[in-house]
Design a protein around this nucleic acid. Structure first.
Lengths: 212, 212
DNA sequence: TCGGTGATGGGCCTCAAGGCCCAAATGGTC
DNA sequence: GACCATTTGGGCCTTGAGGCCCATCACCGA
């Protein structure tokens, strides 16, 4: 689980991004602050592997803050109006990544995984950077969840939308109730849970299935 | 369920906000577009009670788009750098709300509920607007969920974090297993579900309990 | 003071859920 | 051809989950 701190004075952006990252199975937002100094303070009591820092913030430029953070966290700078000059400054301040707010969420998520893994994105050219991001595109699931088979994931998806009874699951999948129970037993073992309620929650948490 | 369309060219913002609104029990994001013309097109095939429109978008000002939408949707304008002049223009274009991106998410959520309910926020002064938003601060839950008692919510919260066995629930709450089962039976009826798996999913969906 | 509601519990009954072990067919890989 | 993972299915057994009806006590508002 990668702990992420967000520093941005636009609450709508910060809270939205926070929710979005919390939904990912391998990232957890541990704090949201609205200024550079607040970021420094927050990191003292709450460590975070990665910090998302906005450039445009009141009470001091976000980039100035990064220089003082040292190796306490890996900073990724995001900017509304990204320019080469800003990127250069972010690089000199020690940021590990630099993105416009126009990039898709999956790109930022991949970048978070990459810098949390010790990689440096900011010194790469665009093609090398995109290749690296491709490499980190998928959330690394728990060992158990990673070994789920297609059929097992299918059952988990149904579970997570409320198809919980054995006979309903069997009907939906055109297999016997016994086979459903066998798959479930295998799922329980892989996810280290003991019943379908816990399995459904795990499926939602891991992002294998979406509720609603 | 209030259907919401988001028009913003900054993907990180739009996707983050989208996830955040989807988590709320009474709002559903049905589309995300990145320009004014795309918003018009999207609304033709996918109706939405409320549209969140950014002012600053490429290929035409977001406010110009709103005038052409008429009563197809209720527009709420959000701006990075909110000014009185922008607010005035949004008002004349027929927007029902105007906010800076610096407002908290709960404020925007309340505004969405208010305008979906036919209210007009933009013509109110600040105090009257805040009072109205206060009124719409809480998500209106389904009739069943609204009648849940404190104890029932407590049980749902435990369920949603994986405490699914009757004996564990009884231990945590210092009551007998029989009482747990009685409460659960009551919960099933109120939420119109048939087992604890579905109840846990509903609890998460309704925002009564948080997973993770 | 009286009713309504919520929280606590009991009894009883039925069937589904989960545990355990096993087997056959399939499809890919070494 | 042999091996392995996946999917499908069986049998058997124990216990827990859920359905239904009822009782007591505390609290609160009319």
């Amino acid at each position: 689980m990668i702990r992420v701190m967000i520093a941005d004075d636009h609450q709508l952006f910060a809270e939205g991004l926070s929710q979005a990252l919390d939904i990912l199975p391998d990232t957890r937002v541990v704090g949201v602050v609205d200024s550079g100094p607040a970021l420094e303070t927050a990191l003292e009591t709450q460590p975070a592997e990665v910090s998302i820092v906005d450039i445009e913030m009141p009470g001091g430029d976000g980039i100035d803050t990064i220089s003082g953070l040292g190796r306490r966290t890996n900073a990724i700078v995001v900017s509304m109006y990204a320019s080469d000059e800003q990127k250069e400054r972010a690089f000199r301040a020690g940021a590990k990544g630099f993105f416009s707010k126009g990039v898709p969420l999956v790109t930022l998520a991949a970048a978070i995984r990459a810098v949390a893994d010790g990689r440096d994105l900011i010194s790469l050219d665009d093609t090398a950077r995109d290749e690296l991001l491709e490499e980190y595109g998928q959330a690394r699931l728990d060992p158990g969840a990673a070994s789920l088979t297609e059929r097992e994931k299918e059952i988990l998806q149904l579970l997570a939308v409320g198809v919980s009874a054995t006979d309903e699951l069997a009907d939906r999948l055109y297999i016997s109730q016994k086979t459903v129970k066998n798959h479930l037993a295998s799922i329980f073992q892989k996810l280290a849970v003991s019943d379908r309620t816990q399995a459904a929650i795990e499926a939602i948490r891991l992002g294998i299935a979406r509720p609603n």
